[in-house]
Nucleic acid binder design. Sequence first.
DNA 1: AGAATTAGTTTTCAACATGAACTATATGGT
DNA 2: ACCATATAGTTCATGTTGAAAACTAATTCT
Lengths: 410, 410
Amino acid sequence: MSTGVEASRRATAPTSPGRVGDVRRRNLSLILHQLGLSGQTTRARLAADTGLTKASVSSLVADLVSAGLVMEVGLNRAAERGRPGLGVALNTAAAALGLEINVDYMAAGVLNLAGDLQFHQVVEQHNAGKDPEEVLGRLTELAGQALQQAEAAGLTVHAGGLAVPGLVDTASGRVLNAPNIGWRNVDIAEWAASLVPEGILGTAVFNEANSAALAELWYGHGRGMGNYLFISGEVGIGGGIIIDSGLFAGPGGNAGEIGHIVVDPEGPECSCGGSGCLERYAGQDAVFVRAGIEGGNDAERMAALLEALEDGDEQALAAVRRAGHYLGVAASSTFRLLDIDAAVLGGNFATLERWITPAFHASVEEHAPAVLAADDVVVSGLGRQAALMGAAGSRIRTVIEHPHLLLKQH
Amino acid sequence: MSTGVEASRRATAPTSPGRVGDVRRRNLSLILHQLGLSGQTTRARLAADTGLTKASVSSLVADLVSAGLVMEVGLNRAAERGRPGLGVALNTAAAALGLEINVDYMAAGVLNLAGDLQFHQVVEQHNAGKDPEEVLGRLTELAGQALQQAEAAGLTVHAGGLAVPGLVDTASGRVLNAPNIGWRNVDIAEWAASLVPEGILGTAVFNEANSAALAELWYGHGRGMGNYLFISGEVGIGGGIIIDSGLFAGPGGNAGEIGHIVVDPEGPECSCGGSGCLERYAGQDAVFVRAGIEGGNDAERMAALLEALEDGDEQALAAVRRAGHYLGVAASSTFRLLDIDAAVLGGNFATLERWITPAFHASVEEHAPAVLAADDVVVSGLGRQAALMGAAGSRIRTVIEHPHLLLKQH
DNA sequence: AGAATTAGTTTTCAACATGAACTATATGGT
DNA sequence: ACCATATAGTTCATGTTGAAAACTAATTCT
C-alpha cells in the first residue's frame, strides 16, 4: 500500500528504450559508487552492501579492473574467521584534470578517482578584458605542466573540466557571458577537445559557482548535507543549488544565479540591466564603496577591508553587516522557494565569515524565521581549490556514473 | 568526443542494483508514454517511434493489454499500401480519482489514462476552521459518488490523488500545515488508504499549487512549454516550478512557495512570521484592502473587485497593478535563480488577467530584462479543475511510469 | 493474378543477473 | 596435528529480456 512517494519524487517517463546491457552499465556504476563510499573493501562486502550477488560483483569488478578504474590491493584481513578477502578500491591512478579561470588568477590541478587533489598550481594573473585566445594559451601551458606531472606519477587523466565565472553552455562547450572577465559567446569546444590527449571523455566547461558548490558537496564542508544553497562571493555573487546531493542546474545549466535576485524593488540599476539586484548590495565593489575603500587592485582592497574590520572601523563593519543583511534577504527567498534549509558560504564570504554571518543569520531569522538552524550555515574551507575541484570532480562523477565509456571491449 | 552534457544534467549514481527485469519495466513505461503522445497508433509505429523492435513492442503491448492499460481499437487504415495495422491506444477505462479540498469548495473528478476528465463535481462549502474529520467525511461521500459513476461507466479506478492548499508530506500522507483551512499536522494516510477500494496504488496527498502546475503541464496551457513558474492566486499565493517537463518538488516536496519570497526587506510582517513576503502585497486580502473592498465572503468580494475594475475604479486598478508589480518582482528573482523564462498564471490571477498582466510584464522587464518573451506569460484555462486534475494526473503518471505494478503475473 | 509493401509473429541468439554448487583459505577447538 | 566451521570467491546452469532475421498476413498497385 503506497501513498505515492514515487509520484512526488518525480522520475520522468523514459523516452528511449532500455536494453539488456543497460543493467550492466548501471551495476558497474553502482560498484564504483559503493567503492567511493566504502574505500578499500572486498568483493563479498560489495555484494552485501549493494545487494548484488557475489558472482555478479566478481564479474563487474573484473571489468572495472581491466578498465583501470578499480585496483586490487592485496589481502584484506578481517581479523575474523574464514578466508580473508582480496582488497579492492578505486584506482587512484585514474584521474581528471581540473582548471579554473577567474578574474585575477588561473589554476590547474589533477584529482584522482578517490577525490585526492594530486597537483595544484595557482597563477596570479589578471584576466579581465584579456583576449580569450591569450588566456586559453596560458592555461594550456599550465594544464600541460599538470598533465606532465600526472604522467610522471603514472596517472591516467581521463577527462578535464574547466570552471569559468559566468554563464556557460556545457552542452556545446561555450562561454555565453562572463562579464567579470569580459568574455561573451566564446566557443572553446575546439580548444577543449585537444586539451587532454588521452582523455576520451574530453574537457567540459562549467559555471564557477556551480562547480564550487559541488566541490563542497563532495570534498568540503557540504559532505553529508544533501540540500543547501552555496553562495560564492567573488567579484560577482554566484550560487549553486544542491538538492538531494546533486546540483540543481536548471533547464539551461545556469540555475543558482542568486546575485541577481531582487532584494529591493526600488533599488539601483544593476549591470545586468535589472534593478535592486543583490549584487548591488553585497557584491565586492558595493562593499568596498560602502566601506570607503579605494584604490589598488582587488586583492589589495580586500586586504584593506580586512584590516579595517580587524581594527573595528565602524564604516567597514556597517558595510559588511549591510551585505550580510541583504544576503540574508536573498537567501530567505531562496530557502522558501526551494524548500531548503542550509547554506554554505564561499569565496569572499568565507573570508569575511566572522563579520558577515551574524548579520546573515539575523536577516534570515527576520525574513524566514525557523527555517535555518544555528549550525546550518557553514563556511567553505576549500578556498581557491573549490571551483577547480568541482570541475574535475564533475568529470570524476561522469566516470563513476558511466564507467562503460572506458571499458576496452565494446 | 563528448563535451560533458551528462555531467551537467546530473543523473545521480545508482544506489540499488539493476536487474534484467528492470529493462522491461522501463520499456513498458516507454510504450505507455509514447501512446500518450501519439494517441491511437499501431505496433509498427510504436516500434519506429520508440526505437524498440516490432517483436518487443508486440510483447510489451500484450502485457499492457492484459493489465487493462492498453486497448486494441480495430484496424488502423493508413490509406497507404501494405497490411493495415491494428490500432492500439491507452485504455480509456483505466482511471484515477482526483480530489481537492480548498477554502471555500471541495471537488472530485475521475480522470482516465488519456487525460479526459470524465466526471467532475464541485461543492461550494466553507472548510476554513472546520474539523478535518468532518471535511474528510463529506469528501468521502463526494468521492463515493464519483467512484460509483465511474463503475457504472465501466472504468477501473487504480489510484487517487488529493490536493490541499498547504504544505504536505506526500511520503507519509500527512498535511503538515494548511493555514488557510486551519489544518496542522493532520495524518490522512489511513483515510486515504480505504478510499479507493480497487486501487492498489492507494491515494496520495499533494500540494494544491504543485498539482495545478502539473495540470497545466499535462492538460492545460503549459503543454509544450517544458519550463515555467506556475503562480497560483488563491487565498494565499502558491507556486509550482516546472523544469524539463516535470515538477521540481524540492527535497521535501514543497518547493515553489513563491508567496513567501521577500519582495521588500523593509515590508510588513507576514502571517508566516517573516516580513516583506509577496503574499502581503499580492495576496487576496492585501488586494481587497488596497482596493477598498469590504464585507461579504471571498466570492462576493472578488465579484465586487471585478465590477470595480470593469468600471475603471482607480483605487481598484491601482491595487491590482500593485499586486502585478510585486508579483513581477518575485517572478524576476525566480527566473534568474532557476534559469527559467516563462510563467503561467492561475487562480485569481487568471481571473484578473486583463488588469494584472500588463503590470506583471512591466515589472519583470524592469527587474529582469530580456528574460521574458511577450508570449511567455500564459494564463490558466483550467479554473477549478486544475488542482484536481493535477492530483489525479500525478497518479495517472504513476501508472504510466510504473505499469508493472498493475501486471497480473508477478 | 502477381508484385510490392507494410504489419505483426516466430525463432534464434547473446547479454545479464541469479542461485546453487563448488573450490579456496582462513580460524578455533580438541 | 586434525577436523569442524566460517568466509571469500568462482563456476555453471537457468530464466528473463531485447535484437535480428526469417517468416506469415493483409493490403494496394499494376
